[in-house]
């Protein structure tokens, strides 16, 4: 089923989505990948405040190529989500509602998604030029020293994704024997 959705995603939207739903997202989302997750997690472990809001938010696992003059961003496709799995259940317990990436997650992540009513979307890996056209604004929020791994805030329009894991425990990727 095709759906147009606004970000931030409502709790109801997240609960209604099912694997295979093809969605077009419009609104704001955070961008964070390996090094940013590590820093956020270190703050959480120390009990310190985070530089970004997690509750109700969407995070896109991505590290863009540099923007040419006059463009908001360079190539901007998803990275492999599984590398963030060590940190993800904690973020889901803090209210993270949606993730965008590619590839399989651990059972712990799927469990935490069920518990917290979250959704995991895949964007098409390796389609970074195409996806960049849906990104209308990109601002660095923090960790600029990490270069491509800085935390960003994006504004996207009709950003194409597919639900690959839903809040009911459904997973679209098949296990291959």
């Amino acid at each position: 089923m095709e759906k147009k959705l606004s970000l931030p995603l409502t709790k109801e939207d997240a609960l209604d989505l099912r694997i295979g739903d093809y969605c077009f997202l419009t609104g704001e989302m955070y961008v964070a990948r390996d090094a940013a997750h590590k820093r956020l997690f270190e703050l959480i472990e120390k009990g310190e405040a985070l530089p970004i809001e997690i509750e109700g938010e969407t995070v896109y696992y991505m590290g863009p190529s540099p923007a040419r003059e006059g463009r908001p961003i360079g190539s901007a496709g998803p990275t492999t989500a599984g590398r963030m799995d060590k940190y993800t259940p904690t973020l889901l317990d803090m209210g993270l509602r949606a993730m965008i990436g590619k590839g399989k997650r651990t059972p712990e992540v799927y469990e935490a998604m069920k518990k917290n009513g979250a959704v995991y979307f895949a964007a098409i890996g390796g389609a970074g030029a195409l996806l960049s056209k849906c990104i209308k604004r990109s601002d660095i929020v923090c960790y600029e020293d990490l270069g491509a791994e800085a935390i960003r805030r994006l504004y996207v329009e009709d950003f194409p994704v597919i639900v690959v894991a839903d809040s009911q425990g459904g997973v679209l990727y098949k296990d291959i024997e």
């Binding site: 991505m62 590290g63 863009p64 190529s65 040419r68 360079g74 190539s75 901007a76 496709g77 098409i124 390796g126 389609a127 970074g128 030029a129 195409l130 960049s132 056209k133 491509a148």
Partner: peptide, 14 residues
């Protein structure tokens, strides 16, 4: 994606 990359000089993949 390949078409956009070549025409607009955006890397094929980030």
């Amino acid at each position: 994606n390949l078409k956009i990359a070549g025409e607009e000089m955006i890397p094929i993949c980030q």
